[in-house]
């Protein structure tokens, strides 16, 4: 048979080398990206005896959840041996008011800046934006002095205020961009109907804000949960968030480190943002696209 097929119908497909290398590259890189997560999980279920053998990539031979229990309730930082649970609850106590307050103030600011021409609002916005790029270190010391002089230092209120202040640029930008894209006719129509500042916000603008509220919540929950430097500086002894506690547990160990406990504590700390990430799916991507300023 030497007859060549008459070209007809779809082009014959073959898995080309190009196609294979695309998948090859993606799979190899994906494995590299997964290794740390794998190591973290595997280690957290191993006994210290098994860890001392040094097979960091191996799945635990003698599976144990002991390290998780220890990490949660009895891992030590210096002399205190209470695990990360205190930090977890501290983080929750910081997280909830900070997220609510920063989104409330951010949306209010974005709304006022978009629809009203208050003198100086534009300058305010520009300074806020620039502020988002400046490392916290530039502000921290004077802020600590200010906070101690008004009694906010080392307090839950203090750390919440700090989160709101440093979350303000991103939140304002987010809401201002979103509201700026809404048709101005909506606002004008409500105004012609006689609605005031708050009435328009409540009945017209907020009902249309759910997408941006979701994005803002995702950004703030992960951002505030993951914060270290602000919690370290402002929360004080009694409100230390989980990241600070975790770092203390791992990095202030005397003698041999309990790597399995460390990794269990690390996973527990990463759990909240990871859960937000996996469950929010495309919203998370939308968030980083909208708020890529965070850096």
């Amino acid at each position: 048979m030497s007859a060549v097929a008459v070209p007809q119908g779809p082009r014959p497909r073959s898995l080309s080398i190009g196609r294979l290398s695309v998948y090859g590259f993606l799979i190899v890189v994906a494995l590299c990206f997964l290794v740390p997560l794998w190591v973290m999980i595997a280690t957290s279920f191993k006994t210290m005896d098994e860890i001392r053998l040094g097979h960091v990539l191996a799945w635990p031979a003698s599976f144990t959840i002991e390290p998780w229990l220890k990490a949660w309730s009895s891992a030590c930082t210096g002399l205190a041996c209470d695990g990360v649970k205190i930090g977890f609850w501290n983080s929750v106590r910081i997280l909830i008011p900070s997220v609510i307050a920063s989104i409330a103030i951010g949306s209010l600011t974005g709304y006022a800046m978009t629809f009203y021409r208050v003198r100086g609002a534009r300058t305010l916005f520009v300074i806020l934006l620039l502020g988002a790029f400046i490392p916290y270190q530039v502000f921290l010391y004077p802020l600590v002095r200010m906070f101690s002089s008004i009694g906010l230092y080392d307090s839950l209120t203090g750390i919440v205020v700090v989160h709101v202040v440093f979350g303000l640029p991103l939140m304002t930008l987010l809401f201002r961009n979103y509201y700026g894209a809404l048709p101005i006719e909506l606002f004008n129509a409500a105004r012609v109907d006689g609605a005031g500042f708050l009435a328009i916000l409540r009945h017209v603008i907020l009902p249309m804000s759910s997408p941006i509220l979701i994005v803002a919540t995702i950004l703030q929950v992960t951002g505030i949960w993951n914060d270290f430097i602000l919690g370290l500086t402002f929360a004080g002894r009694s409100n230390r968030p989980m990241t600070v506690l975790l770092n203390n547990i791992v990095n202030s160990t005397q003698g041999e480190a309990a790597y399995n406990v460390d990794m269990a504590a690390t996973i527990i700390t990463a759990l909240v943002p990871l859960a937000v990430y996996f469950f929010s799916g495309r919203w998370f991507v939308r968030g980083i696209a909208a708020g890529a300023v965070k850096g």
Binding site: T222, N226, T243, L246, T266, T269, A270, P273
Partner: peptide, 10 residues
């Protein structure tokens, strides 16, 4: 999605 602290420790 994770904290730099977590990344560093891992």
């Amino acid at each position: 999605a994770m904290s730099f602290i977590v990344t560093g420790l891992v």
